[in-house]
Each structure stands twice: as C-alpha cells, then as structure tokens.
Amino acid sequence: MIAKKVLLVGNFGVGKTSLIRRFVLNEFSEDYISTIGVRVSKKVVEYQNETIKLMIWDVAGTSGNEKIPKAYFLGAHGAMFVFDLSREETFLTIDKNLQMVKDLSGIENITIVGNKKDLLTDEEVQNVVKKVSVDIDLITSAKEGDNVEDAFMQLTAQTLK
C-alpha cells in the first residue's frame, strides 16, 4: 500500500471539510464548524490497480491575508484548491492563492474545484466559470455528493505523476 499526503486548501467556508466528510464518511452536515489549524482524515482507495492510503490534510481556511504554516505543506504529494461558486471573494484572487500554495508545497499541478453548485442554477454556474481566471477541474456539491468522488480520484491521480 502506498501512502500519499494530500492537502485541501482554500478560503474559510468554501466546503473543504464537507467535501472530505462526503468522501470519507459519505455524510453531510449543514452545521458549520470552522477548522482550526489542520485536521487529518484517512481513506484507502483503489486507483489503477494500486491501493493508496490518502492522508487528507484539511488546512484551515483563510480570508486571504493570513499566512498558513509551511509545515502543513511539507511532504505533500497533491493538493486540491477549493472555492465557493456562490461567493465571489473566494475566487477573485485565485491566481495569487494558487501561487502561494505552489510556493509552499512545491506542487505544480493543483486540482481546482468549485464547490456548492447546489446553491446556483446551471446558468449561474456557467457565469462563475467564465469569471474564474484559471481552468476549473471539477464543479462539486458536497451536499448532494456531485463529483466529490471524481474530485478525489483526480487528486489521487495527481499524486502518482
């Protein structure tokens, strides 16, 4: 079995913890509990005939200005940047935030996920996609479970490159 450390990063309240709960436990809660520091979850997945233990580091969200301790990023094999499709402030500075994650982690290919699609119409989602300055890998809903498994499988694939 291969162990891989992966990071979920992004602003506070974008749904990182909810995505992890949906993926690891297949649960969703409307209750918002802010992550303080970092929380680590584990899930064993099968990918391309490999058994991989994902060590999923749920890094506390920021409002953009706070510095995240570099120690959280050390030894990471992959990263997912999550933003909230319904909150413009979570994706307006996405370029700067992605660069910070790349600088801290050394990871070049970061999976980009727009979460909370259940709060928007399809047309609104398309308008957001046009506004975001980077290519979005997946549009998810932790609440409804849409594309959550796919997002983590893409993240898993990133760790093996």
Rank of each mutant, 00 (worst) to 15 (best):
K67T: 06
I68M: 09
I68P: 02
I68W: 13
P69M: 07
P69A: 02
P69C: 00
K70H: 09
K70W: 13
A71F: 15
A71L: 13
A71M: 13
Y72Q: 06
Y72L: 02
Y72H: 10
Y72E: 01
Y72R: 08
F73V: 07
F73S: 10
F73Q: 03
F73G: 08
L74G: 07
L74I: 12
L74C: 12
L74V: 11
G75V: 15
A76K: 15
A76R: 13
H77R: 05
G78A: 14
A79T: 02
A79V: 12
M80E: 10
F81C: 10
F81L: 09
F81K: 03
F81A: 03
V82D: 09
F83Q: 09
D84H: 02
D84I: 05
D84V: 06
D84F: 01
L85W: 11
L85G: 10
L85K: 07
S86W: 10
S86A: 12
R87P: 06
R87Y: 10
R87S: 05
R87V: 05
E89W: 08
E89H: 12
E89D: 13
E89I: 11
T90V: 08
F91H: 15
L92K: 15
T93G: 06
I94N: 03
I94W: 07
I94K: 11
D95Y: 05
D95G: 00
D95L: 02
K96E: 12
K96H: 11
K96D: 12
N97Y: 13
N97A: 03
N97V: 00
N97F: 14
L98I: 07
L98H: 02
Q99A: 00
Q99F: 01
Q99H: 06
Q99I: 05
M100D: 12
M100A: 13
M100F: 12
V101F: 04
V101S: 09
V101H: 04
V101Q: 05
V101K: 03
V101E: 03
K102H: 01
K102Q: 03
K102R: 11
L104P: 06
L104I: 09
S105Y: 00
S105F: 01
S105M: 02
S105E: 01
